[in-house]
């Protein structure tokens, strides 16, 4: 009988030897250097997740060093994006940076509402303790619509952007939307007053997916929910924004491909 037992134990060992390793390594963020400027004994480096900036929501990171190459993490830093179209100028929604004590990078974000380069180009003014570092930026048009400017039924202009995740995958994903109101050419306050209805669909398949969770406001213009991708491919996230029982924006959508 103990022979049988040892056989069983050996079989169990065989089975145990077949475990797969986790295929998803952790990804670094803000690892792509965009530009570097030195002035007044401070070197400011601008980083992003991708080597090129695109329309929509972009995480932007700034690291500061003094002349002795020491990292600076105790100065107040702010972002001010500006689009100069010659005859007119405007800014865009921004999330002001905070210093990440681990990476010593100031992490913020900008929603670029249009592409720009050459004659009508974006720049990012990074204010470091009142000292302005101006980074000229090239912003490409994103092939997928992941942000949009919508005029609501209350005649206000709203900007909705999809906060890109590290990675989309099949199954349930965290969904993060960033919603701002445009009050002037230069001011885009976050708007936390909406109820959001999310309906994902696959344009190629005429089907959606079950078990999604409508994004709800978590403050600072962010709305967090869940989206269930039953498969990879093209997805369109239909969004409806409701405030005080009235539909303010209908027919807004974000496109996802993975």
């Amino acid at each position: 009988m103990n022979r049988i037992f040892s056989c069983a134990v050996l079989c169990a060992l065989i089975f145990a030897a077949c475990k797969k390793d986790n295929p998803y390594p952790a990804e670094a963020t803000g690892g792509k250097k965009i530009a570097e400027i030195s002035q007044n004994n401070v070197t400011a480096t601008l980083w992003a997740d991708d080597p090129t900036l695109q329309t929509g929501y972009n995480r932007l990171y700034v690291s500061l060093k003094d002349m002795r190459d020491n990292e600076i993490s105790n100065l107040p830093v702010s972002f001010f994006p500006l689009m100069d179209m010659g005859d007119m100028k405007h800014s865009s929604p921004v999330e002001q940076p905070l210093c990440n004590p681990q990476t010593k990078k100031y992490e913020g974000a900008v929603v670029f509402t249009m592409p720009g380069s050459g004659m009508s180009a974006w720049q990012l003014d990074v204010s470091v303790d009142g000292d302005i570092f101006t980074f000229p930026l090239a912003v490409n048009a994103r092939t997928l619509q992941q942000s949009g400017v919508y005029v609501g039924t209350d005649a206000q202009k709203y900007i909705i952007a999809l906060v890109p995740p590290r990675k989309w995958q099949m199954g349930l994903n965290d969904l993060d939307l960033f919603i701002c109101r445009q009050t002037s050419m230069m001011e885009f306050p976050a708007d936390d007053g909406f109820t959001v209805e999310l309906t994902p669909e696959m344009p190629s398949m005429e089907h959606g997916s079950p078990n999604n969770v409508n994004p709800v406001s978590v403050g600072k213009g962010h709305y967090k929910g869940k989206i269930n991708y039953t498969m990879t491919g093209d997805w369109r996230l239909q969004l409806k924004l409701i405030k005080n029982g009235a539909v303010i924006v209908d027919g807004a959508y974000m496109d996802v491909l993975f």
Partner: peptide, 25 residues
């Protein structure tokens, strides 16, 4: 005394006209 381990894997990739391929398990 008997025992086994069975593993099943099945997947589907759809190829829409003009759209990106869609994959699922």
């Amino acid at each position: 005394l008997s025992g086994y381990r069975n593993r099943l894997h099945a997947e589907m990739t759809m190829f829409p006209d003009g759209g990106a391929p869609m994959y699922m398990l």
